[in-house]
Design a protein around this nucleic acid. Structure first.
Lengths: 138, 138
DNA sequence: CCCTTAATGAAGATTATTTTCACAGTCGTC
DNA sequence: GACGACTGTGAAAATAATCTTCATTAAGGG
């Protein structure tokens, strides 16, 4: 499925910058990229683009439900392609590596806690921080 | 116990700005304040201070273990006095009300997950979002 | 009190992100 | 396939949060 079609299905014109950015997101082995990361990869791929456009497009992708924006404790946002399944994140505070996980027990407990507090749970955000195996070994 | 003594016990000189900022944090009914919030309260209390000093002092307080800095998905940091007990937050997406909670089962699960992923867990951040009882009734 | 050293304030520097605005590109229409 | 309306883009300037620089001032020990 070409990116251009995917964009149109989400109500976005298939412009060159948008297609390229989507390609970068889909082809990256690292699932969480900052706007700057995306920008640098585009430039490295000989694609001329402005950083402002990257920010703009990523924000549009988020609004369109194509990507999810995360605010890790790093001072900047990171984006990942929206997948069907929810997951939480474990971030290496040294190299920035991100591992994804999902835990039904925690999810259930969260619902229970929200109910106990009288809240109607609509969303949650769980991030674990620590040193990844490689960084521990250093 | 006067604030000046509390500061000294944490290895910080008891300067006027630091004492005043600590007073603001201790007297506020709202537990989570941004640097800007603290600054505005100081000014409102007729205490002349520079915003840079507020940032500097809050960062020192964090390093000294006097306060904890949270990175909520709002674009700025918020600080709260460090208490003896760790807790997570449940935030009302409509009125901003914050409820604090702690759950040993979730904490244990987090440690387990981090270990499974090969990470050394150093910190975590769990925020639940939803509608508080009052806002649901609207 | 005085002196050494650390702390503060004001302004400028940084970093991340957004907005402005003139110009170029997309896409439905003919 | 060309036309035109309207949207999208790039460059640069604007914002927002936070930090750093540097000259001045204030803590606290002696």
């Amino acid at each position: 499925m070409p990116e251009s079609q995917e964009l149109k299905e989400h109500g976005l014109k298939a412009t060159f910058p948008r297609v390229k950015i989507l390609e970068i997101l889909e082809s990256s082995s690292v699932h969480h990229l900052s706007a700057e990361d995306v920008y640098k990869r585009l430039i490295a791929n000989e694609f001329e683009i402005g950083l402002a456009t990257v920010y703009r497009v990523l924000t549009q992708f988020e609004a369109a439900g194509l990507v999810i924006r995360h605010h890790f404790d790093e001072g900047h946002s990171v984006f990942e392609l929206a997948t069907d399944k929810h997951h939480d994140h474990m971030v290496c505070v040294r190299c920035g590596k991100v591992a994804e996980f999902h835990d039904d027990q925690i999810e259930a407990r969260q619902r229970q806690i929200a109910a106990n507090l009288g809240f109607e749970l609509t969303d949650h955000n769980l991030n674990l921080y620590g040193l990844c195996a490689r960084c521990q070994a250093r």
